[in-house]
């Protein structure tokens, strides 16, 4: 399973990076979402992979997984929502103001307003 998780996170990272290098804002926003998935999974996985041992205290439990990365990642997920929201709103506003959704704020090849 370790290899599956590691390679899966790798693919998510690669797709995120690729999308972030696109020229239009919307793919970049999607790319940031992908990077958030990858980073959150990565941080989570640093607690190592454990099956069936949630960190809920129970006298009958055979053991627990590492709760610390989970707590970190929980807030990270919520914060990445805030970040995605801000970026998409900026992208929207930029498009409405400039009339182009290119990341440079102007259509490629078009001169003039920056």
């Amino acid at each position: 399973m370790e290899l599956l998780v590691a390679s899966g996170v790798g693919v998510l990272t690669a797709v995120g990076v690729y999308l972030c290098l696109r020229g239009r804002t919307f793919p970049v926003v999607l790319g940031l979402s992908f990077l958030s998935y990858a980073v959150n999974l990565f941080l989570f996985a640093t607690g190592r992979l454990v099956v069936g041992r949630p960190p809920i205290i129970d006298p009958a439990a055979p053991g627990y997984t590492d709760p610390l990365p989970q707590a970190l990642v929980l807030t990270a997920i919520v914060i990445s929502f805030g970040m995605t929201a801000l970026v998409v709103v900026l992208a929207l506003r930029g498009f409405l103001e400039a009339g182009s959704d290119h990341v440079d704020g102007r259509e490629p090849g078009a001169e003039g307003r920056r």
Partner: peptide
């Protein structure tokens, strides 16, 4: 871009695999 992305993904995979297969 594909090359950069693939390298980044590969790097993350190697790093994460190394972490997952090591003890603290």
């Amino acid at each position: 871009d594909v090359a950069i992305a693939a390298l980044a993904g590969l790097g993350v995979t190697v790093l994460l695999y190394a972490i997952l297969t090591s003890d603290f």
